[in-house]
Design a protein around this nucleic acid. Structure first.
Lengths: 204, 204
DNA sequence: GGTCATCTCTTACACCTTGTCAAAGTTATC
DNA sequence: GATAACTTTGACAAGGTGTAAGAGATGACC
């Protein structure tokens, strides 16, 4: 229902649309308040052509976020989330997310802002949220995680913490390794996982 | 250095300034993209008067956030954060934050967006962040929290989780009690606190 | 290869918002 | 009550978004 090609569109139209989305992601990443004019120029088209593909600025932003979401779920689905311990799967999921997010650090900050209507927010985030939820549920069944906190809360909290980690490393307050480790440890603790996270044992 | 009255301003000027900040908080809470015209009208002044007090839209937004920050730190400082167990102090701190945030649910979403320059972000958030940090440090000294995660990360993560809880209850995905409980439990777990949080024992 | 629908470009316009300015009016303060 | 401070009114420029129509170019399809 999501990836329906609507109708056979002309090749140059598809090309323009892709160029606009590319340029929008690139430009907005560097300058979150860039005008449509700037984006159009970066895409090599005129502003009216942008309007021909995306009726309003908001729709364009939504399409950009949608594309990033698709990239993210693709990376997550490549991580074989149903295999192995849920703890490990969750870490693979977080790494997949980070892998996409690191390419658009500037958009990460604004991404939660752009989501205006609850409906659109739901439609977009639900695909990522569903995968997080699935892994958490599996971990609960296997006893790796406890089930004292509402699943909806945990999904929202994991997303927020992931964003926090992205910001910390994007602003160089932490290295990406530090942020990764802190995120993993924090999330696992929040889920009530037994032992501790990844590669950080060495106490004295 | 922050609350210096600059110079004796005329009474009506102070009144206007306060009315503008009030109206801005109120209007932006309901409609985050409201124009200066709308805000000015709600404050009972003209748009030019707004400009006389705040040179740009951004400065006004910053002043609004600053005011909310002041309210928040006031509420936190009234919570006697240096007394009793750090765990309890942290919960009082979170409740103080929620107490302010619940009055401006609409602003909560946008608040992280408005903070543009890293400098201003730091200046504003540092006052709240300092208090969180202080409590966490105390809890570490008393052994209530462990110290495996960087303090800076923990502060950022606590803020993010608090925002998540605010959003969950603002959008009615959770009741405020559920959100409160989930937030407390999550934060304490993340900090490596021994037992579990507040008033949620009742298993079956 | 030619035709036709489709897409893009140019030009043009209306509207809204922000920011600035100057002059006249009002208000508080000494 | 005189004066400085503040507000108001009116007016303007600049920039961004959204819309429209027609000419031109391009690709799809037969």
């Amino acid at each position: 229902m999501t990836a329906v090609p609507a109708r056979n569109r002309r090749a140059d139209a598809r090309r323009s649309r892709a160029a606009i989305l590319d340029a929008a992601a690139r430009v907005l990443n560097a300058e979150p308040d860039a005008s449509l004019e700037t984006i159009a120029a970066a895409a090599g088209v005129t502003r009216q052509t942008v309007h021909a593909h995306f009726p309003s600025r908001e729709k364009l932003l939504l399409a950009v976020v949608g594309r990033l979401t698709e990239e993210t779920i693709a990376a997550m689905d490549a991580a074989d989330l149903d295999a192995g311990p849920a703890k490990d799967a969750l870490i693979r999921l977080l790494d997949a997310g980070e892998q996409v997010a690191r390419r658009y650090p500037g958009l990460l900050q604004k991404i939660s802002t752009l989501l205006l209507s609850p409906q659109e927010d739901h439609d977009l985030h639900t695909s990522v949220g569903d995968r997080i939820e699935r892994v958490i549920r599996r971990g609960r069944r296997t006893g790796e995680f406890d089930d004292r906190l509402p699943i909806g809360w945990l999904v929202a909290a994991v997303v927020k913490l992931a964003h926090a980690a992205g910001e910390e490393s994007a602003t160089a307050r932490m290295t990406s390794e530090e942020a990764r480790d802190a995120l993993h440890t924090s999330v696992l603790r929040m889920l009530g996982a037994a032992a501790d996270a990844g590669r950080s044992p060495g106490p004295r």
